[in-house]
Design a protein around this nucleic acid. Structure first.
Length: 272
DNA sequence: ATAAACGCCTGGCGGC
DNA sequence: TGCCGCCAGGCGTTTA
């Protein structure tokens, strides 16, 4: 389940491999991956050259000559690089072929991933990117900003941190880690978060996500930035998916439950 | 307006 | 061994 650190890792991998290449052809084998018209998507990409690559929230933003290609990995999306002579894999849904006779394949078992082509210079001002909140390392992400945005929320803080319109980039795994590090009960209503709590959350978010970025993300299940490339942060997880089920601070059994429909791990003794 | 529920998808798992 | 039902979960859409 790629979250910000995994998305950054994939973006860096793409930078190394595809910058400077020119798109010769595009094949779409599962239409629902594409936001908008499939034929326009293909037409808009052909002949464009890969310029720069960045991220916005969990979106990968690939700037081309006149367009921007945006990609969301959702649950299991990943990119493979092949030679066009290699037959399409079962879960390869979009294949972009370059003029140098290499290609890039969007592979997604669950077919939840999304791609779209938008005008280059307005890409951040258009849906879906325009709806995103602050990046976790944005200097404008202050305790005041966070508390203001949580004030009207009656959902659990765990759920509010997954709301991409407030802070963008946090997913289910890092959410649990951030709240554990902040000693905050994931079930607490978002509107009970104090400025001090918010300060804690922001600091821990930066610490955890920065460290995860350094370690190449978390490899759980199927995340890979390219074939054979795996992150290492899974070894650093304190609570989420922990095998022994014990709190690393107090040793008590962790609570495994659902919050807002998402699998949630926390320590009821250490998180208040 | 907010929030809960549903839909999108497939592979892996437990149970029989 | 095989079939069935259930689960995972990001996020857009639908319903309450």
């Amino acid at each position: 389940m790629p979250e910000k650190p995994e998305v950054i890792t994939v973006s860096k991998t793409l930078e190394k491999i595809i910058i400077g290449k020119t798109i010769k052809d595009v094949d779409v084998y599962w239409d629902n991956i594409i936001i908008g018209n499939k034929n326009d998507f293909i037409k808009d990409l052909k002949g464009e050259k890969i310029d720069t690559i960045t991220t916005r929230g969990k979106w990968i933003v690939i700037f081309l000559t006149t367009k921007a290609l945006i990609c969301h990995l959702r649950m299991e999306g990943k990119f493979f690089f092949r030679n066009p002579s290699v037959p399409k894999g079962k879960h390869d849904h979009v294949i972009i072929t370059f003029t140098d006779d290499t290609d890039m394949r969007f592979n997604d078992v669950r077919k939840f991933g999304k791609m779209a082509v938008l005008p280059k210079h307005e890409v951040f001002k258009l849906k879906p990117l325009v709806d995103l909140g602050l990046e976790y390392n944005d200097k404008n992400l202050t305790p005041t900003y966070l508390v203001e945005n949580l004030q009207k929320k009656k959902v659990p803080i765990k759920t509010a941190l997954l709301d991409q319109s407030i802070i963008t980039g946090i997913g289910n795994i890092y959410d649990d880690e951030i709240l554990f590090a902040s000693h905050i009960d994931p079930l607490r209503k978002a509107n009970t978060i104090s400025l001090e709590d918010a300060d804690n959350i922001i600091k821990n978010t930066k610490l955890i996500l920065d460290k995860a970025v350094t370690m190449g993300g978390t490899t759980i299940k199927s995340f890979t930035s390219a074939e054979g490339v795996h992150g290492l942060f899974q070894n650093e997880l304190s609570v989420h998916g922990k095998k022994d089920g014990l709190c690393p601070l107090c040793g008590e059994p962790l609570v495994v439950t659902k919050v807002g429909g998402r699998g949630t791990y926390y320590c009821s003794k250490c998180q208040k």
